[in-house]
Amino acid sequence: MKSNDMKATRDGFGEALVELGKTDRQVVVLTADLGESLKVTDFAKQFPDRFIQVGVAEQNMAGIAAGLAAEGFIPFITSFAVFNPGRNWEQIRASICYANLNVKIIGGHSGLSNGPDGATHQGLEDIALARVLPNMTVLVPADYNQARAATLAAAENKGPIYIRLTREKTPVFCHRDIPFRIGKAEILKEGTDVTIVACGPLVYEAIKAAEALQNGYNGLNGLNGYKDKLRASSHFDHSSHSNHFSSPLSAEVINVSTIKPLDVQTIVKSARKTGRVVTVEEHQITGGLGGAVAEVLSEFCPVPIKRVGMKDCFGESGEAGELLERYEMTAENIFKSVLEVVK
């Protein structure tokens, strides 16, 4: 699972769009003047007759897409996640989802990946906004390859589909040639002591944490900088854990790249096996992956759960990596949450 290849999920989306442009005349791409940010400019150059610039008007973009879809096109509407599905949520609700129209909603620069722009531009609520809508499918690709595959799958599957993309280059670790299976979560690493359910590029952090946990508490040594932070942390009692977890911990890692419909079977089956769950997402811990997993576990398999993500607060300016540390979403934080949930 080690990866030295770094690419952004938005680039995987852009590549897939060009592939779709060549084979599918129904695909049209709309931008609200964020073409370069969402990587739709290659499509625009190659297929100018199927590229629509709507200006800074996300609500209108959603409505236009409804009209295009009603006539048989497959519109991809693209902007930052805070605006799409943030700004135009009600248009997506009434004009697209209620009519169950074949529109693909692409939210870019999600999570903390839009770091320096600050809290106004960091989409940390989009999964919740999209997930609550009837008829909507919600996809969160974990890397470049999966973003490409998810985009191809979205064009093939009828109905409104939200795809969440990120700005930063992150490790490429999924196989390029595996088709995206909507509704199917993938067990990336099997384990018996705890289940780590993750989505988006943080899946890679979850894998790093799981590998470190194989060395028990000593695994912390492999996670750079963690020990220093650990000492500084008043929330973490070093001594109480050191004896317990000197032995290896076997963590199962599940990549939930479809948030809706959620692969309840895979998640519940794993939770039954391990008895403990940690969710990981670059999103508010309410309403997103953590919320969705908590909903199904409380109904089908109540087990201790710990949610890693944005803790009901807004972000701030900073580099994406710095912000992931500040808001506790790194491999180290996942490691720590596992120790807390297996207490």
């Binding site: 409505g63 236009i64 897409a65 409804a66 009209g67 519109p75 209620y98």
Partner: peptide
Amino acid sequence: NTSGPLGQGVSTAVGV
């Protein structure tokens, strides 16, 4: 078309 939330049908119409 679906309508009621005002303004939405206008956008749908330009899309159509």
